[in-house]
Design a binder for these strands. Structure first.
Length: 567
RNA sequence: GCGCCUGUAGCGCAACGGAUAGCGCACUAGCCUCCGAAGCUAGUGGUGCAGGUUCGAUUCCUGCCAGGCGCACCA
């Protein structure tokens, strides 16, 4: 709905601007292309500046060498005249304010149509199509299956899942994928860690190396094996290599299950689990390196095989095959990304932790060396979240396996608050997560503030005693109060917010939008009664708040937060 | 040393390069015989420093200061 009106307005503005320019004596430097670039339509922050506004006059003023205010006045006059003669125009009035802003007020009918469309097709509200069904692969979390997920992974999961929902709203065809590092050094160490703990349980005195996994869960897994008589005798019958393999397999399967359960409880589900081991067996690594070799981006030096990433702006070339013959992490990763494109994805988005930011240039280089556009890959770095308890940061040292897990946060503050809190700041900014605040059930806690608005509306609708069908016929022109108009404007801006999130590849703006929408509702509620003796007005207000409820619940759903009917 | 992120009111944070820099907490004073007071209203108070680009800079560029994180032939 927002997109539809914006588009309509854009073409009206183009027409008005061109018509204005045509009246000028030979305007220099202006072309249609520049107009598309400078015609930016915004939602002004003050409502007195209109529902939508454009600063096109400032940019145009430089080109045609006239005063911005005069340019604005000229365009506004044309737009105003066009709108008056065109009943389909969404423009109610046009004003020139400040040094040359063109402020546009929309007809009430736009908002009434908006409310009607929200109420008649709630599930479609906020959906639009800039994606044109293009296929996007969104890879996130992808934590090594060597232990429970940490808070860092939790934030990545929250961001990835919400972003997937946003992109789906924006018309993309999104696949959520988890890249499973189920082989390699870390996995070998996992197997050995469990095995050593197992031997300890058998009464053996072992020297447990520092670089092995220290967490208690390792002991738990070892005990699971040790406590089962049949398993114990099976293990004792295995050869050295088989034993190593057995513990490794057991560990990966168990921890993968732990991770999947944690994600499920967090409300995050993946479409694909992509196994690195399977990738290795498929021969795709050799194929990918072969391709790069053919293109001239592979060379040998010091007994190792290198990828010439500097050809695409990386600081230095990177080893893909070590002098001992084994691959570095980069080799399968190149093959993995090549496979993403081979599977038909046009756009590949990776969500990584901050420890990977140095890795971006070489991955970007790899994508380009594979013959893809560099914009085909977007990498989102999710900065760390620091947990606070009682004003003090909770230490997150990974030494000795002592790190705060997703599970702990989930147990402590619940799914709704944790999902929301992880998204409250810009994704690439640090986040302070106040555990105490997240648990609070007061207006200080934004999650409850929003959910409370939703529950309040649910309560009113339930108590109204008027059937949904009966509300349909409401006369919306009865909605004349400022608070009612503010609410309609806020609902209108939902689409703008989702589009912004999709463009920025960041869901955080939605958390801010929802707080302001909830605020607009609370203000309306305190100033006006919904259930009045005036049946017509009551119906109109019920219609309005039902649309608010839909906006709130759609927004919360995108973030992975529930919309309770009662609290 | 290099790279990424951050610096806005006492605290936590908003502001796609736009207009009078907003919101919450805290503090002060108010609002329930009335749909949920988990709510609302009013008041107090601010862009780290120095330059630059721009009609316009909290936003972009350079330098400095301060804080957080990361820099393997690990994954």
């Amino acid at each position: 709905m927002y997109q539809k009106i914006e588009l309509q307005l854009r073409s009206l503005l183009v027409k008005a601007t061109e018509s204005y320019l045509a009246d000028l004596p030979a305007s220099s430097g202006y072309t249609k292309d520049t107009l598309a670039d400078i015609l930016i339509i915004d939602i002004p922050k003050e409502k007195e500046f209109g529902h939508l506004a454009t600063s096109v006059a400032f940019r145009l003023a430089g080109i045609v060498r006239k005063n911005p205010k005069d340019v604005a006045a000229g365009i506004a006059a044309k737009l105003d005249a066009d709108s008056r003669s065109d009943s389909a125009s969404p423009v109610k009035s046009v004003e020139v304010k400040g040094a040359g802003f063109i402020n546009i007020f929309l007809k009430d009918d736009c908002f009434f149509a908006l409310l009607r469309s929200v109420n008649s097709r709630p599930e479609e509200f906020g959906a639009f199509d800039i994606g044109r069904s293009r296929r996007v692969l969104l890879e996130f979390v992808s934590a090594n299956p060597t232990g429970p997920l940490s808070v860092a992974h939790a934030r990545q999961a929250a961001v990835g899942d919400a972003l997937a929902n946003i992109l789906i709203h924006a018309g993309y065809s999104v696949t959520k994928e988890y890249y499973l590092n189920d082989e390699g050094n870390q996995i070998n160490i996992l197997g050995r860690s469990i095995r050593l703990r197992y031997r300890e349980l058998s009464g053996e005195k072992v020297d447990f190396p520092e670089d092995h996994y220290q967490g208690d869960y390792i002991v738990g897994l070892a005990r699971e094996l040790y406590d089962d008589q049949a398993t114990r005798s099976k293990i004792s019958g295995l050869g050295p290599e088989e034993t190593e393999w057995f513990f490794l397999e057991f560990g990966v399967a168990k921890i993968l299950k732990i991770i999947q359960d944690e994600l499920a409880d967090f409300g995050v589900f993946f479409d694909e689990w992509y196994s690195q081991r399977a990738l290795g067996k498929s021969g795709k690594i050799e194929e990918a390196l072969g391709y790069l070799g053919k293109e001239g981006y592979i060379y040998e030096s010091d007994g190792a095989v290198w990828f010439k990433s500097t050809a695409f702006g990386d600081d230095k070339d990177r080893v893909v095959r070590k002098s001992d013959g084994s691959y570095t992490y980069l080799a399968p990763d190149i093959a993995y990304h090549r496979d993403k494109f081979d599977r038909g994805y046009e756009k590949v988005i990776n969500i990584w932790g901050p420890d990977h930011h140095g890795y971006i240039p070489r991955m970007r280089a790899a994508v380009q060396a594979l013959g893809k556009d560099k914009d085909a890959l977007s990498v989102i770095i999710v900065q760390l979240a620091t947990l606070f308890k009682g004003g003090q940061p909770v230490p997150m040292s990974t030494r000795k396996g002592q790190y705060v897990t997703l599970r702990e946060v989930l147990t402590e503050v619940g799914r709704d608050a944790s999902r929301f809190f992880f998204l409250m700041r810009k994704t690439d900014s640090h986040l302070d997560f106040d555990l105490e605040l997240a648990k609070k059930q007061t207006s200080e806690n934004p999650v409850y503030y929003i959910q409370y608005a939703h529950a309040r509306i649910a309560g009113i609708l339930a108590g109204a005693g008027i059937s949904g069908a009966d509300i349909e016929g409401a006369d919306l022109s009865l909605l004349k109060e400022n608070e009612e108009k503010d609410l309609m404007k806020a609902i209108f801006e939902f689409g703008y917010c989702i589009e912004l999130c999709a463009k920025q590849l960041d869901p955080y703006a939605l958390t801010i939008y929802l707080q302001s929408l909830a605020g607009a509702f609370h203000r309306f509620y305190d100033n006006h009664k919904v259930l009045t003796s005036d049946t017509g007005l009551t119906k109109a207000r019920l219609f309005l708040i039902r649309a608010v409820k839909i906006a709130l619940s759609n927004g919360l759903a995108i973030l992975g937060v529930s919309s309770p009917e009662r609290m």
